[in-house]
Structure formats: C-alpha cells, structure tokens
Design a protein around this nucleic acid. Structure first.
Lengths: 343, 343
DNA sequence: GTGAAAGCGCTAACAA
DNA sequence: TTGTTAGCGCTTTCAC
C-alpha cells in the first residue's frame, strides 16, 4: 500500500526514520559530506558544517549506529560478563566501567554467566554475534571452549578481579592467594590464634580460603575450620555459617569471610548469641562495600578498588579499539586491609 | 597489499571473519538458504539443514547480528535506563529483565541516567542510535524533551517502578502514594503515634514521604518530621539521619525509611544510642532486600516484587517486537508490608 | 574540501 | 523449497 502515485517496484523496507541521506539532501550536500560534518567536523568547511547541523536540528536526526557499526566494523559496544547481577561485589566495577565507556562514546552490554559454566558458551556466542569492540570478564576464562571462541573472535578481552600468569589477553586484577596470606598475617599480628573461614562457593573465594589455610598452617596455627556457603553469599548464609561454627568449635577467635555481607551475617549472629566482637571474636570481611565503615562495630575488611578495575578495563579496551595498540597488558591493582573495629 | 595475483580494484574491507556466504558456499546453497536454515529451519529440507549445520560447525561461524539487525530492522537489543548501578534497589529488576530477555534471544544494554536529568538527553540519544527493540525505564520519563525523543523514535517503552495515569507507552509499577498511606495505617494500627520519615532525595521517595505526611495528618497525628538524605541512600546517611532525629525530636516512636539500607542505618544508630527497636522505636524499610529478613531484629519493610517488574517488562517488549501487538498496557503489581520484628 | 561508487553481512520481497 | 535481487544506513576507498 504505497501512499503516492510514484511508481515503486517494491514495498518500502526502511524504518521510516530520518536518515543521513535526508539530512544531506536538506543541507544540499552529499551524504558522505554530512557524515564527515558529524563525525570529523574538522574536515568540512564552516559553512557546510552549519548547514548540516541545522538540518540535523530541524529533522531530529539520530544517527543509526547499527549501520555505522556494520560499515566501519566498530560497534562502539562493549560487553561485560558478570557471574550474577545479584550481589554488590562487581557493582562498582560495572558502574565505573559504564561511566568510563559512556564518556568515550561507547555503550555497555551486560550478560550474566551464572556461577556455573553451563550457560556460558551460549552467552558467549550471543555476545560475539554483536561484534562488540571489547569484552570484560569478571574472573578468568577457564573453559577451553570459551577461551577458543574468544580468541577466534579476535575481540579484545579484559579479564578482571583475578590474576594469572596466563591471561587470555588483557588483565586487571589482584592475587587472591596474596589476600588469603595477608589476612592471616594481619590476624596473627593482632594476637588471634584460632582462625576460621566462611567462604562462598566460587572459585576466587575458594582460592583465598585455601591460601588462608596454608598460611595459617605455615604459621604453626591449628587447623583452620571452613564453612562453605552457596554463591552468591548472603547475610543469611553468614548467620547460619556462624551458628554452625559456634556449635562445633566455640573456641575460635577470628573469622575471615569471603564477603562483607557474609561478615555482617557473622556479626549479627555473634551479637544474637552474645559473642562480643571484637572482644571474643575478630571478624574480617572482603570487598569494603559502602556500608562496611558504618556498621557497628565498623567492619575490618579487605579493600579492593573496584571502580579502578572498571576504569582501567575501559581504558584498555578503548585504547585497543582506537589506538590499535596490540600489546597485551596486565595490571595488578592490589588490595589493602582496612583496619577498623571488628578485628 | 593483496596476497594473491587476483586483480582487485579495492583493498579488502571485511573483518576477515567467516560470513554466511562462506557457510553457504561450503554447504553448496545460496546465502539466503543458509540464513533460513539457521533462523527458520522449518523452511528448508532436512538435507540442506544438515549440510548447513555441518558447514557452521566446521567453520566456527558466528552470525553477525549487527548486519542482521540492520537488514531486518530488529536489533534484538533492549536498553534499560537506571538512575545508578550503585544501590541494590533496581538490581533484581535488571537481573530478572536480563534473564527473561536472554531466554528469548535478546541482549540487554545498560545506561545510567543519574538522579539528575542532566545527562539523560545525551544518554537517550546514544541509546536510540542503537535502535533497540525496546527501552525499559526505571521511573517515569518526565522531561518533555525526553518524552518527545522517545515518542519520535517509535521504540516501545516500558516505564517501571511507578504508576501514572499518563504513561508514555507501557507501564509496570505501583503507587508510591498508596505505599505512604499504607505504612501510616500499619504503624497506626500498631499503636505508634509519633511518626517520622527518613527519605532519599529522589522523586519517588519524596512522593511516598509526602503521602505519608498527608495520611498522618488525616489520621490526626502530630506533624511528621522528615529528614532528607542524598540519593542513592546509604547505611551511613541512615545513621546520621537517625542521630539528627534523636537530637531534635527524641520522642518519636516510629521511622519510615525510603530504603532498607537506610533502615539498617537507622537501626544501627538506635542500637548505638541505646534506643530499643522495636520497644521504643518502630523501624520500617522499603524494598525488602535479601538481607532484611535476617537482620536482628528482622526488618519490617515494604516488599516490591522487583523481579516481576523485570519479567513483565521483558514480556511486554518482546510481545510488541514479535507479535506486533500495539496496545499500550499498564500493570499495577502492588506491594505488601512484611510484618517482621522491627515494628 | 567534496563527492561517486562500492560494499559491510545480512534479510525482505518477489519469482520460480 | 530454493534462489535472485535489492536493499538496510552508513563509511570506506579512491578520485577530483
């Protein structure tokens, strides 16, 4: 059903939206000139620029970056894979990543891989099919198929929140083994001798926990009991883990938790059961979430500069996309133990 | 620099990746047939399907949905706008939205608008330029320019987490005015008479707060003092708001907080200052975050089915994109007050 | 500084 | 069921 008498061979396909052609026609220039006026204004005369800008304003033209992406092979889209959107751990990283990206004209796509690797492959395909200019992974890509797919796609990848000598491509993170050790040293220096761990059932938490146990053993401390709780960690699982610990081993004097939320649960249960923190029990969290400093008692915890991870990841990807710098970079952003009242 | 002696007029542009053409050639069919084998397998013969699938497997072909999106005017991308990625409030909505979308072959794009409207317009343009199949807003789009842009783009929009008689398009939310009133009734029934509010400085919180004040007045209660804290709300601002309230009006017997985190801050400060909850002071939160039930005392709070909002929004958008159903729909998912120990 | 032509990789429309 | 053709809206390449 065409509206006018103009002879048309086919039905119109387009969305009907204003296109660059419309703008160009209105401005009296060729489409490519309009394109240049918008993307590289330095390359056109002031007069042309003005006319194009007027045409844009009067039509309400919004460029179609899907088409632009196809033509230029640069989507200006970056994908981030997180285990889950529940849980505040990666939140600041994603927030900082998005902010840094938007500032540079990129957009963020999100995918939840789950803590299991099951859906990961399908998700990876869905993401690669959008041809993002970069992919940010929280954690290390372990599955061989995943690594292969990513490598084959030739998309810049930043692995984060971990450290490995064999990154897929680029890397921004820190050593979980070092964290485990450092917390043992910290608690030992505070005079604590009967340590315990409450850890979420994900790979990085487990790595901290194992390093913690090994370091405690090396320091000549008694065996460190461990309670593993499902990922993502919750206040509730912290409470029940603490209840179990208290039941089985009432003599412990310090607990290292794999998240601040878990630590809050542990402190809550301690309070309910009349165990004084830090008097009888030291509690150390992980993450230094916004609330940690203002709890009562204020939570001693391991601080990770979550925002920095996001910012640096964004920078790496944008530089790769724009500068074409091919070098693979790895940054260890480290961590610190924030010594507050709970330990 | 061409590799072979073939006379080429231009340098090769493509990404070098395997394309549908490669797959089709390998399978011995036309590109469109390969396309159909992958997208609408019912339309091709079993034999062709098999050959195409084999070709896909042997080449590691991953479809380019950027190209597909351009050709079909369906990007299978949905954008979500949140005020901020910090703060757990919309987290479950986004999580559920993403899950429902991925299940149906869509991908989620994220944008942070900030609580101020300043960057919103630029963000909106960035999003529209990707031609998503739908946009999910947290909150109502108020700015006239924003509404205009969205309408002009012709992209299905779902406004969420609020209710209005004049939605832009589709709507999934609840009435914040009703929440404010219901909490007054609830506290009144519990015998509380000197109510106060701690509210984040965002529009929806303010609306609950105002309705709360009005309802208290209508019930013949004394004027309700209000402390406004910056958005996003934090445990810290809850503590200082409570400290202020206690200093100025020590006689209050109930506080309605605009988030559970704020409520936790209020309870923490109360505990530190020796005010018994719920004995002397009732505390009501908002959101029913995962941790609320396991605090001590367990937090009485307003429960919103955050996941349902995400799921329904996804459904609305997908139906619009696929069914072409043009009707505008509005759903009030309501809320409930979860009566636990803190009030 | 400006433009014509070609094509990015895919799918809608039409035809056989 | 399969194929041909013509784009989607933009940017690249090459030429003036």
């Amino acid at each position: 059903m065409t509206q006018e008498g103009t002879p048309v061979r086919r039905a119109r396909r387009g969305s009907g939206a204003v296109t660059l052609h419309d703008v160009a026609r209105l401005a009296g220039v060729a489409p490519i000139t309009a394109s240049r006026a918008l993307n590289t204004p330095g390359q056109v005369s002031a007069e042309v620029l003005k006319k194009v800008l007027e045409a844009v304003a009067s039509t309400g033209y919004v460029p179609n970056r899907v088409a632009g992406g196809l033509a230029s092979a640069r989507s200006r889209l970056v994908a981030a894979l997180v285990p889950t959107l529940s849980g505040p751990v990666f939140q600041e990283t994603i927030k900082a990543l998005d902010e840094a990206l938007v500032e540079r004209g990129y957009q963020l796509m999100l995918g939840q891989s789950g803590y299991a690797d099951s859906r990961e492959d399908a998700l990876l395909e869905a993401i690669i099919s959008r041809r993002p200019d970069g992919i940010v992974l929280t954690g290390i890509m372990h599955s061989p198929e995943g690594r292969k797919r990513l490598l084959a796609a030739g998309i810049p990848v930043v692995e984060t929140w971990d450290f490995t000598p064999t990154p897929l491509d680029m890397l921004v993170g820190f050593s979980h083994v070092d964290v485990g050790r450092a917390v043992v040293d910290f608690l030992y220096a505070k005079g604590r001798r009967r340590l315990a761990v409450v850890a979420g059932d994900d790979e990085r938490s487990r790595r901290r926990q194992q390093a913690f146990q090994a370091a405690a053993k090396a320091a000549g401390l008694s065996d460190v009991p461990v309670v593993i709780v499902p990922a993502p960690t919750t206040l509730k699982s912290g409470r029940s883990a603490m209840a179990e610990l208290l039941r089985v081993l009432p003599g412990i004097d310090a607990v290292f938790c794999s998240s601040d939320l878990l630590a809050l649960g542990v402190m809550t249960e301690a309070q309910v059961q009349g165990v004084a923190v830090p008097g009888q029990l030291a509690v150390v969290g992980f993450g230094d979430l916004e609330f940690a400093a203002d709890l009562h008692p204020a939570l001693t915890t391991v601080r990770i500069d979550s925002s920095a991870i996001g910012r640096i990841a964004a920078q790496f990807i944008v530089e790769r996309a724009e500068g074409g710098a091919v070098e693979s970079r790895a940054v260890d952003i480290g961590f610190s133990i924030v010594d507050r009242d709970s330990a």
